[in-house]
């Protein structure tokens, strides 16, 4: 996936903070819980015995579908990735199942790096947003990054190596 130039090396690569996938998985937990409640309260429905095998068959198909949904959610989370090398920042964003967008920003063109900690939860869990502005007025925002201050320091450190103080 990643083709590095000669002399280029990966300094750090990161996904979004785990809180992002955890909050998406609450939907999966809800779906599984509803299935569990249905199973627990199944005797109250007084279904004919003839229907029970069909109910269990459909239940396994339901679990299979929920498993697939969980995998797609994880897949979308996992393939959002930022890679900082000693030359550039690569921003890869997965949009949906098969659509993805990849951008590259040369470190030498970066002018501003801004860190935002958006909420109390973000302060506790140590994640935040990273905004990078380049000379060409292009910018990108990496949201929900774990240990965002460390990432900022890594980027600034690499920029200083490329552009020593004049």
């Amino acid at each position: 996936m990643l083709k590095l130039h000669e002399g280029e090396k990966v300094i750090v690569a990161f996904h979004r903070h785990w809180i992002v996938i955890a909050s998406k998985m609450t939907m999966v937990i809800l779906l599984l819980s509803s299935a569990l409640f249905f199973l627990i309260f199944l005797p109250l429905f007084n279904l004919p015995d003839l229907l029970l095998p069909l109910v269990f068959y459909l239940f396994t198909l339901y679990l299979l579908t929920v498993t697939f949904i969980a995998f797609v959610l994880w897949f979308d989370y996992y393939l959002d990735i930022w890679i900082v090398t000693n030359e550039r920042i690569i921003d890869v964003e997965q949009k949906g199942m098969f659509k993805r967008e990849a951008s590259e920003f040369m470190l030498s063109k970066i002018q501003d790096v801004t860190v935002e900690i958006p909420s109390f939860l973000a302060t506790i869990l140590r994640y935040g947003n990273l905004r990078v502005q380049t000379a060409g007025e292009q910018s990108f925002v990496a949201r929900d990054i774990p240990d965002v201050d460390r990432v900022k320091n890594v980027i600034l450190s690499e920029i200083r190596k490329i552009k020593p103080k004049q």
């Binding site: 690569a13 498993t67 995998f71 996992y78 393939l79 890869v92 199942m97």
Partner: peptide
């Protein structure tokens, strides 16, 4: 999805461990 993931994921990324359990659960179901 797995082909897409293998093409675009980073090697040695610990998050890859999710694939095995997902495939196992899917196969059992």
């Amino acid at each position: 999805l797995l082909w897409h993931y293998r093409k675009y994921s980073l090697p040695k990324d610990p998050a890859r461990r999710v694939i095995g359990p997902f495939l196992l659960i899917s196969l059992i179901l």
